[in-house]
Amino acid sequence: MRLLTHNMLACNIKGVTNGFPLGIDATRVETKEVEMNPDFLKHIFPKLRWEAFRAAAHSLGIDNLPEQVDSNMLLDEEFLQQFHHALLEVHLEEGALICPETGRRFPVSKGIPNMLLNEDEV
């Protein structure tokens, strides 16, 4: 699971109002190199919730992302490379995602988050 995926996941247990962003408890993290696609990065950047992305990257040991960002930074090759790496190359393979409100854990197994709820949570 890439951090791009993490950025769109929220806990939707009935009654939960602050189910985003999910915390990360990482058991196994993998890095898989992929070709950089600046078009995709520029397209996704304005839609990304940066603070959540930065915090998620931090919990996987990536500390080089700036706190404040704006679209001009996408012209900077070094920033683009860091952004690309954290967003698309680092994969949470095993672990759990944790609801910030309830502490409910959503397992991540073989790189796939499981967002299914139990009957009493729907």
Partner: peptide, 29 residues
């Protein structure tokens, strides 16, 4: 979802894949 992940990888494609009831967990995003 595991099978989809393998199929995508075999075609060198990337996607966000998740286990969900329809769009549970991503609906607001």
């Amino acid at each position: 979802v595991e099978t989809t992940r393998s199929t995508l990888a075999a075609h060198n494609l990337h996607a966000d894949v998740l286990v969900a009831d329809l769009v549970s967990g991503i609906e607001s995003s």
